[in-house]
Amino acid sequence: MTHRSTYALDRDTVEAIRRLSVRWKVSKAEVVRRAIRGLAEQADNAGDDLTPADVVARYRGGAVSRSMQDVQREAARQRSERAAEEQARARRLPSG
């Protein structure tokens, strides 16, 4: 189900969304969905007791390790997402 929303964004954010949309070859809405999904996942994995400063310090200390299962799950999610986007794009393009 799709929910339409309106948000006020600064010029830099709008431009960043546009650039990512072009780079990833997806809609601007998809850029926002991916960003929110990624941030929500990070927040869920970081724990409620970490402050933003704690999260920055954690990443500044080097790569955050992931289990092989997490890596495989994320790779499968991204492959599935790309396949769905390609199918949706193919449906939108005129045939012939």
Rank of each mutant, 00 (worst) to 15 (best):
N45G: 09
S27A: 03
T6I: 10
H3A: 09
R23F: 12
P94M: 15
S95W: 02
R92H: 12
A43C: 03
E41H: 13
Q87Y: 04
G38P: 01
W24A: 05
S67K: 06
R73K: 11
R82P: 02
E81N: 10
A16K: 04
V32H: 05
E15F: 12
V31C: 01
A53Q: 15
A35G: 14
D49G: 00
R79T: 14
G47D: 04
A57E: 14
R23K: 15
A57R: 11
D49F: 12
A40H: 10
A8L: 12
N45V: 07
V22N: 01
E41Q: 04
R91N: 11
M1D: 14
S95H: 15
N45M: 14
Q42M: 13
A43Q: 12
A40W: 06
G62A: 03
L20N: 06
R58S: 06
G47Q: 04
Q42T: 08
V64H: 04
V22F: 03
T51K: 05
E85F: 13
N45I: 01
V32G: 01
W24S: 01
D12K: 14
V64D: 02
L50Q: 11
E81W: 15
A16R: 10
E86N: 02
Y59Q: 01
I17P: 02
R77I: 02
R19S: 07
R66L: 14
Q72W: 06
R4K: 15
R73W: 09
A43E: 06
R34F: 10
V14G: 03
A76G: 06
Q72P: 00
R19L: 14
S5W: 14
G38C: 06
R92E: 03
T6Q: 07
A63L: 08
E41T: 11
I36N: 03
A63G: 08
A29C: 02
A8P: 00
D54T: 03
A88D: 08
R34Q: 10
D10L: 05
R4Y: 15
D12A: 05
D49H: 06
G62M: 04
E85I: 07
Y59A: 04
R73Q: 12
A43F: 10
D70L: 02
A90R: 14
S21K: 01
G47P: 02
L20A: 08
E86L: 10
K25T: 09
A8M: 11
R89E: 04
R92P: 00
L93D: 09
R60N: 10
R79I: 07
R79D: 15
T13Y: 06
D49A: 07
L93F: 01
D49M: 00
R37K: 02
Y59P: 00
A63C: 03
E86P: 04
K28Q: 10
S95M: 06
E81A: 11
Q87V: 07
D70R: 11
A16Y: 07
S67W: 13
E85H: 14
R23L: 15
R82F: 08
S5T: 13
G62N: 02
V56K: 10
R73T: 10
L39R: 05
G47L: 00
R58K: 13
A53E: 08
R82H: 04
Q87D: 09
M68T: 11
Q42F: 15
A29F: 05
P94I: 12
Y7S: 07
L93P: 06
D48K: 11
Y7L: 15
A43P: 00
A84G: 06
E85Q: 15
